[in-house]
Amino acid sequence: MSKEWPLWEVFIRGQHGLNHRHVGSLHAPDAEMAIMNARDVYTRRNEGVSIWVVPSAQITASSPSDKGPLFEPSNSKVYRHPTFFDIPEEVGHM
């Protein structure tokens, strides 16, 4: 078997002002072609205004067993969420 095109992760900004979002992956020989392929594969229905591609091999992921230590501490900081605060209705929308 000949050498396989590397795998890329594709991130698309759906509308101006929004974050890029992971939409899927594809194969391409290099980054430039990955961008072109992403346009053809992942924006067939006008889904995007901007594309990022990243070699899948370059993604470093938090290991699932870190789930506790990495994310649980923020559970205790409930004050970070707007619903923590009771604001009287008379004040209006906030």
Binding site: M1, E4, L7, G24, S25, L26, H27, V41, R44
Partner: peptide, 22 residues
């Protein structure tokens, strides 16, 4: 063409399990 896309999405999903598309 969409069906080719479906194939592509699914192969990608399979690849996360440690098998390559080729």
């Amino acid at each position: 063409q969409d069906e080719a896309g479906h194939g592509l999405y699914l192969y990608s999903a399979a690849e996360t399990l440690g098998v390559s598309r080729d």
